[in-house]
């Protein structure tokens, strides 16, 4: 028998001692979504798809800017010493993923703005003629277009991976101690972005592309989830204990029903049937993917911060 009592504060007893509440899962979700949108809009620029007048390439940058700003707002709301936030930008701490993330996010805004200008929505074209001229000039130079596309894809991949590494670098939380968390969060982010493209797309061909891409991404996400759990189950005792939170423990139902079932498997089946033309395209599948992605962040952050090292 081992009985442990402590007079220290205990997050299992007093929930207010938990480290992160709703803000960080929301930030990680929106960060992953925007990362995925950057990858997709970069791809649309590199392919010829963006030249269709109703392409989502014209709306993704603006959506990304808004969603990213909401994510940053959530992050800001989580800070306990808000007035000192500028301290992030007086230093670069090479060992701190959060420091990397804050500098990368500084680069993301200009990349998104450049993408917005080169794929300028019609509404802005009419109102800002000088922007329209700039946009035309940029479009005339293929290397500018390609550079903006490549930078958006590269930064999108970095941000997507970063949302996972932010957690996996915190070795004191065994549930997060997996190198797969970065790729898993990236794939999940791109998958939610593909779902959003599905909802926003006006061109049927683009919608079909988003659906096909999302099926592949959901399959990849499922494989990563399984590998992530297998990895933890074959690692140290504390990681096995952490994994058991999702495999029989308190987060099992929400993880398998809401994240894997409704967030991955069901939309995968619906979209596969739609591609095979057995049923029509519906908005249910992409909405499920997006909701599943959000719940996934909540489960990972909440279960992860409750997972901890225990003495042998």
């Amino acid at each position: 028998m081992r009985e442990y009592t402590t007079t220290n504060s205990n997050p299992f007893v007093d929930i207010s001692h938990q480290v992160w509440a709703w803000e960080i899962p929301v930030y990680l979700f929106l960060g992953g979504l925007v990362a995925g949108m950057m990858v997709i809009s970069g791809y649309l620029l590199l392919s010829d798809r963006w030249q269709k007048p109703k392409s989502v390439a014209y709306v993704l940058p603006a959506w990304s800017l808004v969603l990213l700003s909401l994510g940053m707002l959530a992050l800001f709301l989580d800070l306990e010493h808000k007035l000192y936030v500028w301290r992030l930008y007086l230093t670069f701490e090479i060992t701190s993923p959060m420091s990397w993330g804050s500098w990368i996010l500084i680069l993301v805004y200009p990349a998104l703005l450049a993408n917005l200008v080169i794929a300028l929505p019609n509404a802005l074209k009419g109102r800002f003629p000088s922007l329209a001229t700039l946009s035309d000039r940029m479009q005339e130079r293929p290397w500018v277009l390609r550079s903006i596309a490549v930078v958006n894809v590269a930064l999108g991949i970095m941000v997507g991976i970063y949302t996972g590494i932010l957690l996996s670098s915190l070795g004191a939380r065994p549930l997060w101690s997996s190198g797969l968390l970065g790729p898993l969060f990236l794939v999940s982010g791109v998958s939610t972005a593909a779902a959003l493209v599905h909802l926003l797309a006006k061109e049927p061909e683009e919608r079909a592309f988003a659906v096909r891409a999302d099926i592949g991404l959901l399959v990849t996400e499922l494989v990563f989830i399984v590998l992530f759990l297998i990895g933890l189950m074959n690692a140290s005792r504390v990681q096995q204990e952490a994994a058991s939170m999702l495999l029989g423990g308190p987060f099992t139902a929400v993880f398998w029903v809401l994240v894997v079932g409704l967030g991955v498997l069901v939309p995968m089946v619906i979209q596969s049937l739609a591609v095979a033309r057995r049923i029509g395209h519906t908005h249910v599948a992409p909405l499920l993917v997006i909701a599943g992605g959000l719940v996934f962040r909540f489960v990972m952050v909440n279960a992860g911060q409750l997972s901890h090292w225990t003495p042998t």
């Binding site: 480290v19 989580d78 800070l79 306990e80 000192y84 936030v85 301290r87 992030l88 915190l170 901890h308």
Partner: peptide
């Protein structure tokens, strides 16, 4: 104190629960 933004990464990083906000 004047450099801390209260991001709580260090609270999550400590295996001993030694930190608080």
């Amino acid at each position: 104190e004047e450099k801390c933004i209260g991001c709580k990464a260090c609270l999550a990083a400590c295996p001993y629960g030694a930190r608080f906000t």
